[in-house]
Amino acid sequence: MAKVTMTVNGRQVSGHCDDRTLLVQFIRENLGLTGTHVGCDTSQCGACVIHMDGKSVKSCSILAAQAAGSTITTIEGLAADGELHPVQAAFKANHGLQCGFCTPGMVMTAVDMIRRHQGQLDEATVRAELEGNICRCTGYHNIVKAILAAAAEMSGARVAAE
């Protein structure tokens, strides 16, 4: 058992866990943040995607100990003051989710994707960028639509602000 400390959704948190504890287990079981999911064993489905130090990563393939000292954002930390993040709002408006299980990973992936591409996305790019996230319900059609809509809105908002 080692003590692991990190910043999660803006709060410094600590917990004791085995060195073999995965980051996703630490988040779900030690911190009780069950929005981050586990859908496979081979780091392919992306249900576990979170942001570590500002970048999307798969929390099922990182030990909690590896993440010690880092800054983490999970799906629970995305909406500010009860208002849905524009990506969350776009998923709702475009019916980009059905069973909801892949959704937290999809949303965290989309936020990272839009950041890296500065909102400049087209359908082919979005589909290529979703290589690490599997959805079994939507056929991706409305996920792609939602991400494009969010990207347009977010870059539009930035242009308006500039």
Binding site: R28, G32, L33, T34, G35, T36, H37, V38, T74, I75, E76, L78, A79, L84, Q88, F91, K92, A93, H95, L97, G100, F101, T103, P104, V107
Partner: peptide, 21 residues
């Protein structure tokens, strides 16, 4: 109509069996 259940899924508040403790 946009779905009523979406907010909990989008904010990580869905409650699946493995989330139960």
């Amino acid at each position: 109509v946009a779905r009523k259940e979406d907010k909990r899924f989008l904010t990580g508040k869905g409650r699946y069996t493995d989330d139960m403790s």
